[in-house]
Simulated scan of single mutants.
Amino acid sequence: MRILFITSSRLGDAVISFSILEGIRLKFPFAKLTVVCGSEIVSLFKMFSNVEKIIPLSKRKYNYHWYLLWRKCVKTKWFAVYDLRSSLLSFFLETEQKNVLKGKKSFNLRALEQLSQMGFSSDIFPRVEPFFEEKKRTKALFGIDRYIALSPTAGSSKKCWPVEDFIRLGDWLKTIGFKLAIFYGKGDKERFAVKPFLNHHADALILGGGKDLSFISAALQKCSLFVGNDSGLMHLSAALGIPTVGMFGPSVAKLYAPRGEKAFFLEAPGKSGYGIMSLLSLEQVKEYLMIVFRDCGIDIGKEI
């Protein structure tokens, strides 16, 4: 039984679709999946044992990439196609089931809307587990110390809590017994955004700049807590099962909040989706983190 799964090219949207992958695994435990995704996130789907093949999809002029994808898929008889890109591809393939996400406006959490349209239960959570080899590598890197994962970047600067506040948050976290691991994406823009943080916290573990996503996943799992802006790394952290706090301003938390058994979010002051991140005070974040520490059973030292 072969299933074609077409998902996003972007990290955050791809991780949101993990709920559908989990639903497929539960419903069709012996199915072999072919995943179509962006070339930069291929390593993400290598962590799924039921994924047989991964086809990177790079955008071409005049939607030519869809024709190239059709040529790669047309000779296979598919049991089902799950298309979260809302394309017409499944109508030109031999398949018993077509499940195409409709692009209708929704006021539900994005993951819940996908689960509903694809016919899965809303109580299915996204799940992913890093390779054992990557876990061994990160165990040697982190040792026995306790780390907090901080992610000061996002796809838009408007979605970012000021880096100066992340610096001061890092100072406070150190006083209560944690070390810092900083996570960020690839590219000069991301490196420039985190430079002030790294200049101040020179002892922080640096886990960014386009490292393999399976390694990043294993590194995130070594952290006691993730704190970051609304980003793909935030969604990945929640899917990995670690306590995750996402901070929201100009993006709508009720649509894009992290989803997991230990996922939390904090919104900047103002109307949802229009909040200004700089108005979210350090004290508000610290107070919220103390609640998360308590609810998740994370022990902290005494503040110096």
Rank of each mutant, 00 (worst) to 15 (best):
L89Q: 09
T7V: 00
F131K: 13
K158A: 14
E190N: 02
L236G: 12
M277E: 12
E303F: 09
L150D: 05
I55P: 13
E52I: 13
L233C: 05
C73P: 01
D230G: 08
S87D: 07
V128P: 04
L11P: 07
L112F: 01
P126F: 03
L115D: 02
A149K: 01
E303S: 11
L213R: 07
S49Q: 14
K174C: 02
L93N: 00
F18L: 12
L236Y: 11
Q284G: 08
L207E: 05
A140F: 08
E303K: 15
L44P: 10
K189C: 00
S121N: 13
R259T: 01
G155N: 10
S157T: 12
K104G: 12
E94C: 01
I242R: 06
R85S: 04
N199R: 05
G246P: 06
F226N: 05
F197K: 02
F248W: 10
I3L: 07
Q117A: 04
L89F: 03
H235F: 03
K211M: 14
T244F: 10
V245A: 12
F248V: 09
K186A: 15
I16P: 00
S157V: 12
I291Q: 13
L141K: 12
A218P: 05
S156E: 13
E96I: 01
N63P: 01
C296Q: 15
I41T: 12
G275I: 12
C37A: 15
F166L: 06
L68T: 02
K27I: 01
S217Q: 09
N108M: 03
V227H: 07
L240I: 10
H200Q: 07
T244Y: 07
N63Y: 14
P56H: 14
H200R: 15
K32C: 09
Q117F: 00
A219M: 10
K186P: 08
E129R: 12
T244C: 11
G12L: 03
N50G: 04
E190D: 13
